[in-house]
C-alpha cells in the first residue's frame, strides 16, 4: 500500500499523564490502510524541519489514535495540540509491522514499556488468538491505557519499577514467569532501548519468535534518505544496515545486531 499524504483534523486531545497526550485524528484514508505496528510521520512546528515518526495506537471510525510522550522539541509541540487543529500526516509507513498471529497457534505475549504500550493495542485488537499483556511503567502516575488493554486481552499484568502500582519490577521479569507457564507462538514488544534489551535477554532463551518495534532518528520515512539505520544480520550471518522506516519498524530480535 503506497503511503498517503493527508491533512488530519484532531478530534480529541486528552492528557493521559504529565507529558503524555492521547490524540484522535480524523484521517480516513490512512486509517483505512494502517496495519498494527505501522507509523505515521508528522510535520510539527513551522520552525522544526523534520517530521516525527509516531506509531499508530489504534484506528476507529476513520480516526487514528496516537499516544505521544514528550521526548524533544517535536513531541513537545505535539503535546501542545488541541482539538480542531490540523496535522500534516504521511502514512501508513513501514513495510513490516507486527505480523498477524497464526489463528491455529498458541497465544501471543505482548510486552510494552511506557508509551511503547501504544502500538501493541492495535496488535492485540487484530489478533485472532488470545493475548496476554504485560505493561511496565516507572511509577503509578505514569500508568496509561490500562482499561484499553483490559478490554481486549486475556490477561493484563501492570508492573511499576518502584512497586507503587501493580507488580513491582520490570516487564522482563514478569515475562519470564509467563513464558514458563504458557506456550506462546510469539512475543511482540515495544519500549525504550533499555527495556527492549532486557526483553531480548528474557526471550532469547525461549525458542519463539520475538518481534520488536524499533525507534531511530529518522528522515524521509520512505527508505530514500537512509538515515534511520539499524544493524541487521542477513541469511548467511553477514551484517548490514537496514532502515527502520522501510524494512521495519518491527524486526525479529534475531535479525537485529545488538551493539552495546
Amino acid at each position: 500500500m503506497p503511503p498517503i499524504l493527508e491533512q488530519g483534523t484532531i478530534r480529541r486531545a486528552e492528557r493521559l499523564c504529565h507529558n503524555v497526550i492521547d490524540l484522535r485524528i480524523e484521517s480516513p484514508r490512512i486509517a483505512r490502510e494502517v496495519q498494527p505496528g505501522q507509523f505515521v510521520h508528522i510535520k510539527c512546528a513551522d520552525d522544526l524541519l523534520l517530521r516525527r515518526p509516531i506509531s499508530v495506537c489504534d484506528v476507529e471510525d476513520g480516526q487514528l489514535r496516537l499516544i505521544v510522550e514528550v521526548a524533544g522539541a517535536g513531541t513537545r509541540w505535539l503535546y501542545g495540540r488541541r482539538a480542531g487543529e490540523v496535522l500534516d500526516l504521511l502514512g501508513p509507513l513501514g513495510d513490516r509491522g507486527f505480523p498477524t498471529p497464526d489463528a491455529r497457534g498458541g497465544p501471543v505475549l505482548l510486552l510494552g514499556g511506557g508509551c511503547g504500550v501504544a502500538p501493541l493495542l492495535l496488535a492485540a485488537k487484530c489478533s485472532p488468538v488470545a493475548v496476554d499483556m504485560v505493561m511496565g511503567f516507572t511509577e503509578k502516575c505514569r500508568v496509561i491505557m490500562e482499561q484499553d488493554f483490559k478490554s481486549c486481552c486475556r490477561s493484563l499484568t501492570v508492573c511499576t519499577d518502584d512497586g507503587s502500582y501493580g507488580t513491582a519490577g520490570f516487564v522482563s521479569q514478569a515475562a519470564l514467569r509467563l513464558l514458563e507457564q504458557e506456550d506462546y507462538q510469539a512475543v511482540f514488544s515495544c519500549g525504550s532501548m533499555a527495556m527492549l534489551k532486557s526483553v531480548v535477554q528474557a526471550v532469547e532463551r525461549a525458542d519463539i519468535p520475538c518481534y520488536l518495534s524499533l525507534d531511530e532518528r529518522m528522515g524521509c520515512g520512505l527508505g530514500a534518505c537512509l538515515g534511520c539505520a539499524v544493524k541487521l544480520r542477513g541469511e548467511g550471518g553477514a551484517e548490514h544496515y537496514g532502515h527502520v522506516c522501510k524494512q521495519g519498524p518491527v524486526f525479529e530480535l534475531r535479525e537485529v545486531v545488538w551493539d552495546v
Binding site: 524541519l49 523534520l50 522539541a73 538515515g227 534511520c228
Partner: peptide
C-alpha cells in the same frame, strides 16, 4: 554506510552522516 545515529535536526536544518 556509517554507524547510526545518522541524522540530527538543527535549527531549520539537518546534519547527516549516511
Amino acid at each position: 554506510g556509517n554507524r547510526p545515529p545518522r541524522i540530527a535536526e538543527t535549527p531549520m536544518g539537518m546534519l547527516n552522516s549516511i
